[in-house]
Simulated scan of single mutants.
Amino acid sequence: MNFTKTTEQSSNYEHLEKMTVADLLFNINKEDKTVPLAVEKALPQIELLVSRVVEKMKLGGRIFYIGAGTSGRLGIVDASECPPTFGVPFDLVNGIIAGGDKAIRRAVENAEDSVTNAWSDLLEHSINENDVVIGIAASGTTPYVISGLERCNENNITTGCITCNEGSPLALIAKCPVVVIVGPEFVTGSSRMKAGTAQKLVLNMISTATMVQLGKVKGNKMVDMQLSNDKLVDRGVKMIMGEIPVSYEKASELLNDYGSVRKAVDSFISK
């Protein structure tokens, strides 16, 4: 298959080494400003994917992000932030990276080229038809990700993807593709830049919109967040004060007794 990898095309800027720091920063920022507009064009695709995710999660399903390198790390970041933010189990949103956890910090040679490991990795989590697997790859050609989605399709598991090249093998294989065309990178081929930013924005949308749809946010507050540090405890106390007419001390007492903002507020209202 022949298609143009816009993420690999030559940068619109020449002689970067001759630029001042101010020029480098200005031009990087100039390019970054185009990313949200590119994401906006993909909103209908993101909506379809989120709708499928919510549908499956209501049946007891989970999300699995799979990727290699930067893409894999971004999936892990999004997955790891869901439990503390929304109070969900750690195995509800999962990030899997080619090469295993050691690849989070250091590149694992040839890990992204495997056409069998993604499916093996998913089987370790007892993947099933209620789950959704979202492949992340800026290029849209990563064998690890493509092969994983192919096997999922064969087993009637819902598939999505986040890629930055239209007409890529990955976009054609995923049942719910999200394609964000960000164009050439500031440093030619460095897809950790605009492409990575686009992937992060889309991941934020997928997890946040899904959790809101599942009732994990009330109003605009993270009422189910884990109270894992003093800052979050203080935030939780103030959330309670914003919902019911109590002092800081009483709100703190309620939060300590019930362990979550939602339960504290509901207990007070039900009395």
Rank of each mutant, 00 (worst) to 15 (best):
C82F: 11
E55K: 09
P83C: 06
I76P: 11
D91H: 13
V54I: 14
F86Y: 09
L74M: 15
R73P: 03
M57G: 09
G75V: 07
R73C: 04
G61K: 03
P83F: 01
G60A: 08
P83G: 10
F90L: 12
V54Y: 03
G67Q: 00
G61F: 00
R73K: 12
K56L: 02
F64L: 10
Y65F: 05
P83S: 10
V93T: 10
E81T: 03
P89T: 08
K58G: 10
L59V: 11
T85F: 11
P83E: 06
G61H: 02
V93W: 07
S71Q: 04
I63E: 01
L59C: 11
A79P: 07
V88Q: 06
G75F: 09
I76T: 08
G72T: 06
I66S: 13
L92I: 12
Y65Q: 02
D78Q: 06
E81N: 03
K58C: 12
L74G: 08
P89L: 00
I66L: 15
S80V: 08
V77H: 10
I76R: 04
I76V: 12
G61D: 00
G69R: 07
G87E: 06
L74P: 06
Y65K: 04
R73Q: 03
K58F: 11
V54H: 00
V54E: 04
F86S: 12
L92C: 11
E55N: 14
S80Q: 14
A79C: 05
M57R: 10
V53A: 05
V54M: 03
S80D: 13
R52P: 10
R52D: 14
T70Y: 14
G75Y: 12
V77S: 11
C82W: 04
G69L: 02
M57T: 15
L92D: 13
Y65G: 01
K56R: 04
L59I: 13
G87W: 14
V54G: 06
G69N: 05
G69Y: 09
V53L: 15
P89E: 07
G60K: 02
G72L: 01
L92N: 11
M57F: 12
G72D: 02
K56P: 00
P83W: 01
P83L: 04
G61R: 01
A79V: 02
I76A: 05
V93S: 07
T70C: 12
K58E: 08
F86T: 04
D78S: 00
G75H: 08
L74C: 07
F86G: 13
G87L: 01
S71W: 01
Y65W: 07
K58N: 15
K56T: 03
E55V: 07
I76H: 14
A79Q: 03
D91C: 13
V54W: 04
Y65L: 05
M57L: 12
L74W: 05
R52M: 15
K58S: 13
R73S: 04
G69K: 05
V53E: 06
A79M: 04
E81L: 00
E81C: 00
V88T: 15
G60L: 05
G72A: 08
M57P: 14
P89H: 08
V88K: 05
P89F: 15
G75P: 10
